[in-house]
Nucleic acid binder design. Structure first.
Lengths: 115, 115
DNA sequence: AATATTAATTACCTTAAGGTAAGTGTCTTA
DNA sequence: TAAGACACTTACCTTAAGGTAATTAATATT
């Protein structure tokens, strides 16, 4: 057994698995990142309409968390009615391939898993 | 914007992102998979000791879910006291690289993120 | 005047995740 | 005879995630 890997996974306070899942393991974060990865730039209501089933509250909460982690950038246009645009940061872009790999793994294997 | 990808991500009832996160997006699943990926075969109490902070209850719940999704295999030895060994299935093995990529992304980026 | 628009915010509620602590069965060992 | 090992199971409780619905500010449109 590889002690190095074990130490990395299990170092309780500094566990990368925990850190990453605590941030994007919620119901909506990954979806928003993938969406912005494809769409480049989207306004609040555009994301809201695309996802369809997300509540306004959870969309703002999700966007704020992603912004706090520097995964998305938020650009406010000082006009009325308000206009706010979102797009991925460099860090968000760097996460994208990992998520897309997960998606394609899911497409390959999820069908066979019974509900 | 790529309509194909969007349709894949957003198809509410059949969304691969949701499917995969619903199954391994919980607090312990990924950790257990990574552990079994390194250790090959582990008994219940070995996993319990390695992770340290997981409760017995959550370990059994986690293992049962992973087994139901055919991500880990459970081998019972009919002896007393009981002996049960766990290891990754082929499907679990196929997920492993994706998770390791996520871990290494986390190692590269999580330090910079403030708590 | 009244209504629509946009991106939130707030109060309230429900559900689910996960923790603690105790108990189970069967055998072995001190 | 009592305790220990092992892999759970059960009852109970707390916390957090996420949902609904109403409200906001400032302006343009009808």
């Amino acid at each position: 057994m590889n002690k190095n890997n074990l130490e990395i996974y299990l170092d309780a306070d500094n566990c990368p698995v925990r850190n990453v899942l605590d941030r994007i393991g919620d119901k909506w974060s990954v979806l928003v990142i993938l969406l912005l990865g494809d769409a480049d730039t989207l306004r609040f209501n555009e994301i809201h309409k695309y996802i369809g089933t997300i509540s306004q509250k959870m969309l703002t909460v999700t966007l704020k968390k992603l912004e706090a982690d520097d995964l998305i950038h938020r650009e406010v246009y000082p006009q009325i009615p308000p206009k706010v645009e979102y797009n991925l940061t460099e860090r968000g872009q760097s996460l994208l391939p990992n998520l897309k790999n997960l998606v394609s793994w899911a497409n390959d294997h999820m069908m066979e898993m019974k509900k």
